[in-house]
Simulated assay, not measured.
Amino acid sequence: MTKKILVLLAIVVWLAHTGTVHAEGIGIPGIDVNVTTSNNPQNVATSVQILLLLTVLSLAPAILILMTCFTRIVVVLSFVRNALSIQQMPPNQVLIGLALFMTLFVMTPTLSEVNEKALQPYLAGQLSQAQAMEQAAIPFKHFMAKHTREKDLMLFLEYRKSPIPKTVEEIPLSTLVPAYAISELKTAFQIGFMIFIPFLIIDLVVSTTLMSMGMMMLPPVMISLPFKILLFVMVDGWYLIVKSLLQGYQ
């Protein structure tokens, strides 16, 4: 028995030694990361451009939310779900996905203009990076200025004590973006208020009926929910909501 154990141990040691030899013959790739100085300014400029690009990509969600129609669309869709008193249907993923595709649909002319006047000339070497950024901001400025209330824009201009711009191109993005955001929020809440009214009437009728019947312990939401869904389906609610949102950006 002892001899068998010794033989097994000898085989294990031999296999381990053989595996080590093969591993040494194959070799394991190594990773070496060094930060060195460079005498070529072009290498440094390229590194800075990559860093700026990563910074812009990290800010992409904020740009998407605040400089496009995404804010109004997603807020209105959330109002629809709350008005129907269904907190989890449709799910958040569905609402955000629908809002993203509607945003892409509405912003297609603006994005096409950015591609034509900024991105393609920059890729062709006709514009520098700074010039391309300035050209790319102009279509977004025209889009946001078209849907920004003058009162909201003046709020930020007066706070900065800035002169009134003569053209849309002269409005700085640091002023136009927050003004556009609060204008979109007000419009979204106005649409949400109009959406709530018919469903609120259904809740009042159901609550009054239950109280008159002495059924005060029965939650009115349980009874009114099927009627809300029925009303929303009969009037083709999703079509009307999407249609009103698209018409608001014509």
Rank of each mutant, 00 (worst) to 15 (best):
I96M: 14
L127A: 01
V106N: 06
I164F: 02
Q131A: 08
L173W: 03
S85A: 15
H142I: 14
A124H: 08
A136F: 04
Q131G: 04
K117N: 12
V75F: 06
T148E: 06
A137D: 05
T175K: 13
V75P: 09
G192K: 10
Q93V: 15
T167C: 01
Q135C: 02
F196G: 06
V94A: 14
P109L: 08
F143A: 03
L104C: 11
I197H: 05
A130H: 03
Q87S: 15
L173Y: 07
V80A: 13
L127I: 04
Q88R: 08
V75G: 05
I171M: 09
M89F: 15
K146M: 08
R160D: 07
P165Q: 01
P165W: 00
K151P: 03
E169Y: 03
D152C: 02
K146H: 07
V76I: 02
P165G: 00
M102K: 08
A99M: 07
T108L: 14
F189Q: 09
A188K: 07
E150Q: 15
V177T: 03
L84A: 12
P178I: 08
A132S: 00
A130N: 06
Q190C: 11
R149K: 11
Y122M: 05
F143V: 09
S128D: 02
V177M: 00
K141P: 03
T175D: 07
S78I: 10
A145C: 05
Q93A: 15
N82C: 10
F189N: 09
A145Y: 02
L111I: 10
P90S: 06
M102D: 04
F101M: 10
K166H: 12
E113C: 07
G125E: 10
S183N: 02
S162I: 13
Q131S: 07
Q135S: 04
P91F: 00
E134I: 01
F196Y: 10
R149T: 02
I164G: 08
V76F: 06
S183P: 05
V114M: 07
K166I: 12
L119V: 15
L95Y: 11
K151W: 10
K166S: 14
T175F: 09
G192E: 00
A188F: 05
F79P: 12
A124M: 12
F156A: 12
Y180C: 13
S78R: 14
H142M: 13
M194C: 07
P163W: 05
K117E: 13
I195F: 02
A181N: 14
F101T: 12
N82E: 12
K186H: 13
Q190Y: 10
T110F: 00
T108C: 11
V106P: 11
S162D: 09
E158D: 14
P139R: 00
Q93P: 12
P172I: 12
